[in-house]
Design a binder for these strands. Sequence first.
DNA 1: TTCGTTGCAAACATTTTGCAGTTTC
DNA 2: GAAACTGCAAAATGTTTGCAACGAA
Lengths: 134, 134
Amino acid sequence: MERTIRYSKKREAILEAICSTHIHPSADWIYQRLKPAHPDLSLGTVYRNLNFFREQGTIQCVAVVNGQERFDADVRPHNHFICDHCGAVIDLHQIPVDAGLDRQVSEKYGLQVHHHDLVFHGTCTGCGEKSQIS
Amino acid sequence: MERTIRYSKKREAILEAICSTHIHPSADWIYQRLKPAHPDLSLGTVYRNLNFFREQGTIQCVAVVNGQERFDADVRPHNHFICDHCGAVIDLHQIPVDAGLDRQVSEKYGLQVHHHDLVFHGTCTGCGEKSQIS
DNA sequence: TTCGTTGCAAACATTTTGCAGTTTC
DNA sequence: GAAACTGCAAAATGTTTGCAACGAA
């Protein structure tokens, strides 16, 4: 039978940290963020809870940037932009993508498609302005 | 001034290994593949050359699967499917995606978009059949 | 001879895990 | 009191790097 899920202050704080930002944080960012208020927090706990939330479907990993997984508490389908200079991950909610795309792939290739990720790469506004100055 | 690029048998073999397959190999796959014919090949050399080819634009990294980068010698824009069971990376050449998508993102969000990656996730044919049996 | 390339091993960075102690219910 | 959760430190994993030897031009 399924295991019982217990309340934990650390777990609550970790989810709250992810929900409180739109930067799509990494495990270490969450750890650094919570460390002041939770001095005894350990990085292992952050990782364990990130995997817990991922299994529950509460969060999703939206990208791996410079070898670090980046998480999003918004699990509704939407797309992302990654700045290849500073590593920023930005939500794109206004980009309409053909809703039947998954079915198209499924039919043409005979694959069971569960979802897709659409990620744009380029230079974000801040990095673009900086490079113009120099 | 730019550095001179010299010929090297290992480098040639590494590129040949990537070009010879459609599985989108990882660094270690290439290493294992070439080890018999090149017993003194080292993993460091594989990594160094992968980064070399990437900088040259000869290959691209198309995904990170189970923490491993997966490479493709086909640098033309096309999409991919990843099997979440076995980690297979499959080319999708027949999926038409709006060519103006990058410009749309650029205009709506004021970002400099260089390219995008569209990755489908699901279960591949082989894994789907296996799970039906059990 | 020059300097790009390599093997090797050590270093690095991120993530996972074993275990003993703590907390929740 | 059972078992979920945690801190800690060690381990595992994938990748990078320093250095001396090797090889191409």
